[in-house]
Design a protein around this nucleic acid. Structure first.
Length: 883
RNA sequence: AGGCACGUAGCUCAGUGGGAGAGCACCACCUUGACACGGUGGGGGUCGGCGGUUCAAUCCCGCCCGUGCCUACCA
């Protein structure tokens, strides 16, 4: 069904039309019963209430390219989509909404608040899905999952309960990162360090028995209220005799011991350190070693509690000022100096995180980390680029227990019930009626929810139906590829590895592709606060989705971030236009054509067909190696640099000529090469390729997405012949001649439309005879002769592929330009010649370099030598001619 | 402090043990029947610096300089 294409490509209607058709035909759906080799991926679930940003656009384009590519390879493909409930992030958004109404979540109560979040999810949760669809994502939408679906919630409970009974989850008291604003515990990963302009204060604690005292330094003087010791290094001679003595804590008057502990760095500060086990991770460990009390000074909201004595109810910051004033008054404040340092802040709200002593649920990580490390070391899972494996190893080798509980309301409530009778915990998948220890019915469920990453960690198998034995799980686990950003290798990738290996006894994915980070044109990270965020949806509507996708693929090289500016964006847009116009050319020249196929075709027909084969295999290799930039660059080069620049130009004479058979073969070639190009381009530019393919006179009811690379030689009019070695060489000679003669035209300033007369050596007569059409369309040569006589003086002569080709110049005015041209060329040839000669004069080179390299240099020398001699001769004659 | 990247044309970036490429920008000519989001030609680079290995280094090794990122309990 051939039809004309509009003069300009209008992306928007084409995009929605084809996305609709693919879905109507169910082309995204995966069937576990389909026996073909499988390829599966789970999407990194975006925040359910989020919106599409460029990182999503990039990552999901990559995954879509992989999905569509593997479909064309003939595989049974599952790309499973879904969204994440994103505990803190989502709760913070809804709390802000409430704040505008002057309410807090406590005003509503837990149940009403959670209902409110569900409402917000229902209202905004579809948005990011629609945006992914606008991008063209070919996910199996029938299998869309949400981390708080009943099925996935069941998986969370099952996993928690099993890990608990295996002793890998425990409840205990520990020092955790606490956000006083969110009033929840945070993992280390959620508490990034940020620089603050602090001070280092030096305090003096007097000995209880006798004169003198000991000096300690601190950045948080208010924590001295919780000090229970002073520590010095056991080898430090300055303090050795003080160990075991006591000092009196200023302000509170508490007597605390001086202990020896080798965590103290004698080089730093005074070499003595105050120990606050309740509010510092190091001190907590030190306190444990020495049996020191850990005093908690904080209320959950960050104000000081009764342990702070007179400072009760002050905020930490207010308390710091008051404590400093009082220490000064007491003579205990010795010094103060500016001290910029790094302090953990809440990832979500940037409040300073306080170390807080509390009871939490933890996961033991060491036993889970070992198998994950082994899996990557043994290559059962491979990272691309491989260098990211170092990051993965480093974190897992130094892993600490994971604080699982969060004091939030939005999330999976921990399936643990505390007995009001005996105080024991009952942990179960089904809500229990009685305590498993004492049988009491006085049970209260844990208030806390699980860290969001707990459910994300189960994603590759919970989405496939785990803990049930489903056909999907059997068929699609382990998944083939996970594509994600480097920033969640710890948060997510490592945890999926650990939990996948633990519950499924196999890795969750074979390959992990770590995509680049997209930065702005200046190379700065995009962020809302900086205001440098580029909205992918705007780019999709202004440039077209295919253009954006192509641009992103062009920029996706391994191991480097992407700087995205306006200059980069035009690449995709111009390429889309070029492809569109090439297709228009083909369709305009296919009037009344009935595809026949099977013919031998012209030399050019066979050449472009051979080039298409090469382009296809190179493209497939690139995609298999996650080299998306190479894949897209190769396609660009083939379509623009070979199909458009050479083949289409060469076909014009034939298409407009009288030879009906030749025309039919060229028409067949146009259709088949264009179809093949569209097939290769389809994964990257799905919309425009379908639109063009549908317009081609091809007897095919299916969309490109339903086709396979293997069918390329079968389905469409297809030339069966390829170039042989002699013909391939001839094409090289021909293109070199065209290039050299064009160069002369340009350098002599001959008008592009002016015809030229060319003189070839007679040995090229047969070859040139086969390229009349090409010489006419590419060189605008309108006359040529064959002669072995020296070329006339009024001619520009070039060496091309070892032959002297003369362009006859009617106007003597060009001779001056020709002299200049020859002088310039001769200079470079002589330079090259000198270099090669020097090389060959080196006996060590001739002796030790590989023979084929030496041989190549000798041939090169010979050619350059001849060329230089010919040019020198021409120059002399021209100079004498001009006087 | 430790680790990992990166440094190639004016800009953004590919790349390889045998005199370095693309896109954009630039210059000249061209509104030729697919395409001016185009065509043809051209200019432009001591491949960060210094050493080493090699017949040969932009590429491999070491050191240094610069930039970025990650990790870490320096009070």
């Amino acid at each position: 069904m051939s039809e004309a294409l509009s003069k300009r490509f209008d992306a928007r209607p084409v995009e929605s039309k084809w996305y609709g058709r693919w879905r109507e035909r169910g082309l995204f759906g995966a069937d576990p019963a389909d026996p073909r080799e499988m390829f599966s991926m789970v999407i990194p679930p975006p925040n359910v209430t989020g919106t599409l940003h460029l990182g999503h656009a990039l990552n999901n384009t990559l995954q879509d390219v992989l999905s569509r590519h593997q479909r064309l390879e003939g595989k049974n493909v599952l790309w499973l989509p879904g969204t994440d409930h994103a505990g803190i992030a989502t709760q913070v958004v809804v709390e802000r909404q409430l704040a505008k109404e002057g309410k807090t979540r406590h005003d509503l109560g837990r149940e009403a608040f959670v209902d409110r979040v569900w409402e917000w999810k229902a209202q905004s949760g579809a948005r990011i899905i629609e945006q992914l669809q606008a991008l063209g994502a070919s996910c199996d939408w029938e299998r869309e999952r949400f981390t708080m679906d009943p099925g996935l919630s069941r998986a969370v409970r099952e996993a928690f309960v099993r890990l608990y009974h295996e002793g890998l989850i425990y409840r205990g008291e520990s020092l955790v990162n606490w956000c006083p604003r969110c009033t929840t515990v945070l993992s280390d990963l959620e508490s990034p360090y940020q620089p603050v302009a602090g001070h280092l204060w030096t305090l003096r604690y007097p000995f209880v028995d006798g004169e003198g005292g000991i000096e300690v330094a601190t950045t948080r003087p208010e924590t001295m209220l919780g000090d229970t010791a002073v520590a010095v290094h056991p080898e430090d001679d300055r303090y050795r005799e003080f160990v075991g003595r006591h000092v009196r804590l200023p302000l509170l008057g508490r007597e605390i011991p001086i202990v020896a502990d080798d965590f103290v760095d004698p080089e730093y500060g005074s070499g003595a350190v105050k120990v606050t086990p309740g509010h510092d991770p190091n001190d907590f460990e030190c306190g444990r070693r020495h049996g020191l009390a850990a005093i908690n000074l904080l209320h959950p909201d960050g104000r000081l509690n009764g342990n702070a004595g007179p400072y009760e109810d002050l905020s930490a910051m207010d308390a710091r000022e008051r404590v400093l004033v009082d220490l000064e008054a007491e003579g205990a404040l010795i010094g103060s100096e500016p001290h910029p340092h790094e302090v953990p802040h809440c990832d979500r709200c940037s409040t300073v995180v306080e170390p807080l002593l509390s009871d939490q649920w933890f996961m033991r990580m060491k036993p889970l980390a070992e198998p994950a490390l082994a899996a990557v070391r043994e290559g059962r899972t491979t990272f691309h680029p491989k260098s990211w494996e170092n990051t993965f190893f480093h974190w897992l080798e130094n892993i600490r227990d994971w604080t699982l509980s969060r004091q939030l309301w939005w999330g999976h409530r921990i399936p643990a019930w505390k007995c009001g009778g005996c105080g024991d915990w009952t942990v179960a998948t089904e809500d229990p009626e009685h305590c498993h220890t004492c049988g009491s019915a006085e049970l209260e469920q844990e208030e806390d929810v699980l860290d969001t990453w707990f459910s994300s960690g189960l994603w590759p198998f919970s989405t496939l139906g785990w803990p049930d034995d489903t056909p999907e799980l059997a068929r699609y686990y382990p998944t083939s590829v996970l594509s994600t950003g480097f920033d969640i290798i710890f948060f997510w990738v490592a945890r999926m590895m650990m939990l996948g290996l633990h519950f499924m006894d196999d890795v969750p994915f074979r390959d992990v592709y770590i995509h680049p980070l997209i930065r702005d044109a200046e190379g700065k990270k995009m962020s809302k606060s900086k205001g440098n965020v580029i909205d992918p949806l705007e780019l999709m509507s202004s440039h077209g989705t295919d253009a954006l996708r192509f641009t992103l693929m062009r920029l996706t090289a391994q191991g480097r971030d992407i700087k995205l500016g306006e200059g980069q964006l035009s690449t995709g847009r111009t390429f889309v236009t070029k492809l569109w116009n090439a297709a228009r050319f083909a369709l305009m020249n296919l009037e009344g054509h009935r595809p026949a196929g099977g013919g031998k075709g012209s030399l050019y027909d066979r050449w472009i067909t051979t080039r298409l084969d090469a382009a296809l295999s190179e493209y497939r290799r690139s995609i298999e190696g996650f080299r998306f930039n190479d894949a897209s660059q190769g396609l660009y080069q083939f379509v623009w640099g070979e199909l458009c620049d050479w083949y289409i130009e060469l076909s014009k004479e034939t298409l407009h000529g009288d030879d009906a058979d030749a025309r039919a073969a060229t028409q067949d070639t146009l259709v088949s090469v264009l179809s093949g190009s569209l097939l290769m381009l389809h994964p990257i530019m799905p919309f425009i390729t379908e639109e063009i393919f549908a317009a081609l006179p091809v007897d095919e009811d299916r969309t490109l997405l339903e086709l396979r690379f293997a069918e390329l030689g079968e389905r469409w009019p297809r030339l069966t012949e390829r170039l042989d070695a002699d013909e391939a060489r001839e094409m090289e000679v021909f293109t070199e001649i065209v290039g050299r003669v064009r160069q002369v035209r340009g350098e002599l300033g001959l008008a592009p439309q002016a015809g030229i007369r060319v003189r070839f050596p007679s040995e090229l007569e047969a070859m040139v005879g086969r390229h009349e059409a090409g010489l006419r369309s590419l060189l605008r040569a309108d006359e040529w002769v064959f002669s072995d006589e020296p070329p006339p003086e009024t001619a520009a002569v070039v060496q091309a592929a070892g032959h002297a080709i003369a362009v006859e110049l009617d106007d003597p005015a060009f001779l001056h330009d020709e002299v200049k041209r020859l002088e310039k060329r001769l200079k470079t040839v002589e330079k090259d010649l000198a270099f090669v000669a020097k090389k060959l004069a080196n006996p060590k080179f001739v002796e030790r370099a590989k023979p084929d390299v030496v041989e190549a240099e000798r041939e090169k020398h010979e050619g350059l030598d001849e060329e230089a001699a010919a040019m020198t001769g021409r120059l002399e004659r021209l100079r004498s001619l001009l006087g």
